[in-house]
Amino acid sequence: MQKTSNPAELRAIAKQIRRHIIEMTGAAKSGHPGGSLSAVEILVTLYWDVLRHDPANPKWPDRDRFILSKGHAAPVLYAVMAECGYTPADQLNTLRRLGSIYQGHPDIRFIPSLEASTGSLGQGLSLALGMGLAAKLDGRDSRTYVMLGDGEIQEGQIWEAAMFGAYHKVDNVVAIVDYNKIQLDGFVKDIMDLEPLDEKWRSFGWHTLVIDGHDLAAIKGAFTAAAATKGKPTVLIANTVKGKGVSFMENNPKYHGVAPTPDEVQVALKELL
């Protein structure tokens, strides 16, 4: 893979990742396209521009790490890892099938270059903080990034971890909330409202930034600001659109956990040319 900071190149990669997400979930006939599409710009910025990582040496001790705590968005992570060269791109359409490395939720037993097995919500932030502490003990300057779902942070463990991260000053960890405003049963505000979300994180002692999670420059700027912040961890509250990039999926709760039909796949892929 060739790393890049060029916005046009990153946008082209993002489009390719979206096509993979549509094709994978369409082939699987199940999965979570909406929350995968909302996270594309953030993951593309991380893997192509921000993370220190080497697909040829996935266990490099000094690498930066990424954990997809909202494991149901596995399609976006699989598409990114395949495009980076960690895993075979020609098997992406085996998603969710028996024997596939592309399990329904990320499973480190099937893809050892993953940083964690996730899928049970609420746990990735704690894992990231543990990894951050280990890096500090070893004097490694590697950083750990963890993406949380907005619905996910209704889990109590997230706030246990939030207290822990600030108290122990784990400033080499960055959490990203993919705030697409929709969870399985409907709009987050109607299920269990999170607002005022930025004030919650600030009051828990986190360096809190609110950004447009589809604006490449804003995402990059926030990661740069996070790296410069010492003494406290950073959280990016990334305002995103569920289903971003596919007109009929955007902001539609149906596509949290429903795959596109074959016809819908064709319509979506035309929009993503």
Binding site: R65, Q123, S126, A128, L129, L133, A134, Q157, F164
Partner: peptide
Amino acid sequence: NMTAIGAGLAMA
């Protein structure tokens, strides 16, 4: 949280 912090430490 403690149990998963332990897991993160072990994974690193």
